[in-house]
Design a protein around this nucleic acid. Structure first.
Lengths: 239, 239
DNA sequence: TTGACAATAATTGTTAACAATCGTGTGCTG
DNA sequence: CAGCACACGATTGTTAACAATTATTGTCAA
């Protein structure tokens, strides 16, 4: 079995342009962030080899890196599975974000004059456009990316990496516990947070991010957990 | 070359007990934390293979993981080197710690009643003992570990991982920029922070950690950077 | 029909040989 | 003597075959 290329949304644009394992990580990472790869989906080495057109070594490297970022879980002799956070992990993620993000936006609002907010203003435009066009995966991705870019704006790579990990995990959690349509952040809260930062209002910015995080968390249904499907179908788009 | 076992401090206790690549990561990690492995030291695959008595695959896995944690740096076709932070990274590390640790200890002091501080009280005892015996590497390691355990006390694995990474990086930085004897945290500041937490005094605890971090940072000489030696001698103790 | 058990297929883990790259030292040349 | 080119040695990167483990299927008996 596994004849030639069974995947449609995969090797569309560039058939076998050099896709090193860094690209592999990025592709899988993005697929998880956009909730195209559901939690608990098995990622077998053979399929990924075909999918990306690389040897097993590169796939294994990528899987190891992804597991070190908590995006997938490696089970000994059993393969790699997209991470599937439970209730406890979910509350840990939000607790960590509650610890970090308020001081973060407060700090941004304090020295708002001295830093470049173009990244964020541009981002809000992107979010609006995506919401306009009702592009689901774009909305989901951008919704998380706002928080990542918030951290990126500090120019501190450690803060950036921490936020990136937390946001990624949050995306998984929202996919698992998100009730109904509530898969992304409420509409214009991001915009309001940015405005508070721009107008040098640390207290307001902090307050807004706190309630924003609370909104996300309260939009979850921690009891009924959407059962993760093992779909192999709509995976890993080329971009 | 590379006859039998050239390393003294290595395979002392258990000659070839199963040391999987998890152990390899731990061993190298610990060596870096205790500043036995100087920044910029080259870690060649062949030597690590002999040292740990495993195949190249395990070594490469370990190196990849270590590089993903920022403990070493992988240069393409050139090998692995112990990370060597520069001035900019150093200030980023302290900025990130300034962002996280104050709210962290504040939070601990707030709900001090409901959490188990045994980890920390025990730790202070260990620190005192090590200082008594003037065990340099122990003091260095424990001095960083206090902060890690501070995070561990929250029971939040994300906060723990963040702090662990920052503390590790701090250890490298202190090794590089640390002026003279000032290789560890000032004597009893840890103890005072713990007391503030125990007595449910969030403001004091926060203030103490801030000045503690400032003390560490001001003990560095950011200009004259200790030139990293390429020593292969005193490496990777067995414990 | 259901359960356990055995054989087989599929997948992951490991090893070793091979290829490619980089650093170094040697010798040539100006 | 300085500088460059080349070749050699050492180290890293890659591939493919092999071993070990797990999952699946089919069979048989209760």
């Amino acid at each position: 079995m596994s004849s030639s290329s069974q995947q449609s949304s995969l090797e569309t644009s560039d058939p076998k342009l050099e896709s090193d394992e860094n690209t592999i990580v990025e592709r899988i990472y993005k697929a998880v962030m956009e909730q195209r790869l559901a939690p608990n989906t098995k990622l077998s080495e053979a399929r990924l080899c075909e999918t990306f057109g690389v040897g097993r070594m590169h796939v294994r490297r990528a899987l190891l890196l992804l597991s070190s970022q908590g995006i997938i879980e490696l089970q000994s002799n059993r393969g790699a599975y997209v991470a599937c956070p439970d209730k406890s992990e979910a509350s840990d993620v939000f607790a960590a974000r509650m610890l970090i993000e308020p001081p973060l936006v407060r700090q941004l609002a304090q020295k708002s004059g001295g830093i470049d907010l173009a990244l964020l203003t541009d981002h809000i435009a992107l979010e609006d456009a995506a919401r306009e066009k009702k592009e689901r995966t774009e909305i989901i991705r951008l919704s998380g990316e706002f928080h990542t870019k918030l951290a990126q704006t500090t120019g501190n790579k450690f803060i950036f990496r921490m936020m990136r990990e937390l946001v990624t995990r949050t995306s998984l959690i929202v996919g698992l516990f998100g009730s109904s349509e509530n898969t992304s952040c409420p509409d214009d809260e991001h915009s309001n947070i940015l405005k508070a930062i721009q107008s040098n209002n640390p207290e307001l910015a902090e307050q807004l991010i706190v309630s924003h995080l609370n909104h996300i968390q309260s939009g979850l249904d921690m009891e009924a957990r959407r059962e993760p499907q093992d779909d192999l179908a709509a995976i890993l788009g080329p971009n």
